[in-house]
Amino acid sequence: MQATLKSISIGLLVLFCVQVFAQTKFGKVLKTTPGIVSYTFRNEFAKNVPQTLDNIKALGITNIEFSNLFGKTSTELREMLNDRGMICTSYGVSYEALQNKMDAVIQDAKTLGAEFVRVAWIPHTAPMDLTLAQKTVADFNSFGQKLKENGLTFCYHNHGFEFLPYQNGTYFDYIVQNTNPDYVSFEMDILWVFHPGQDPAALLKKYPTRFRLMHVKDLKKGVVGDFSGGTPVENDVTLGTGQLDLPKIMKAARKTKIKHYYIEDESPIAGQQVPLSLLYLKGL
């Protein structure tokens, strides 16, 4: 009985979201409905891609950042998106793919209709140091140049370990300041800025033209961060219920070049949390 009532309440919430987000303007701070990162519904996509797309659209979300093709070809995914009036604006790939399969990355990104190609992890076996930072800069400039030549924009998604102190700043500062802005842009994951002890709003103000994409998420209260780049997925909570100062962050983001915002919720109850996170963002 309790499970049935819970299912009904979630269904009503989804219906309410559809009605609310059908409006032209999403909210006061975030003007348009945010997208979603496919990883949020990774388990659902792994079982049934068409149904998962239908469920996402039922929430009023039509913009997806894919970081997995879930056993489909890019052509098949694009057809599914087209059939539903949905789009893919960013395509997430591995570092190894950019190093060794660049042509395939470019083809898939273009087929999906993505404008951005994103990587979210720098291979490493030890904490970030200058040698790794220098190699990262060289690789990013190379990746970005090749992608730009093919009409795509390269973005790096921070993951926490880049914020170890270096000189008067961090290794993340070093990477931003030493990459070519014509070739290299960034996707801010606000949880992975906050977790290692940084202020997302301050970082947005520091580099207002370098961030083009954002992952919007929140960190469970009481969780203590570090430079590991990892935290249990259960620590992803409904927006507005965790530690991050989202009103401050989102207002700062409005003054940057960020083009697309995506909700990313890695928790096992993302299906319950995402509708509530949407309502929170709309109410800002």
Rank of each mutant, 00 (worst) to 15 (best):
F70E: 09
M80C: 07
H124M: 14
K221D: 00
W192H: 11
N141H: 08
P181G: 05
K148C: 01
I36E: 02
S94H: 09
T241K: 13
E79A: 13
E79F: 05
T40R: 02
F26W: 09
E44G: 00
V193P: 04
Q273R: 13
Y91F: 14
K217N: 10
S9T: 13
A270P: 06
S267C: 11
L152C: 06
L98E: 04
A252H: 00
L30G: 05
F194Q: 10
T231C: 08
G113E: 00
T32Q: 15
D129A: 10
V49H: 03
L219M: 11
I64M: 00
G229V: 05
R210V: 05
I190Q: 00
L191G: 13
L204F: 04
S94Q: 14
L147N: 07
D182A: 14
R42P: 06
Q99H: 13
T170Q: 03
G71T: 01
I106E: 01
R210F: 03
G229F: 03
I87Y: 08
F26K: 10
E234A: 12
V117W: 09
L281Q: 04
R212T: 12
G271T: 12
Q51P: 03
Q134H: 12
V20L: 15
D129K: 06
I64H: 04
S94A: 02
K25I: 13
I122Y: 12
E79W: 10
G225S: 01
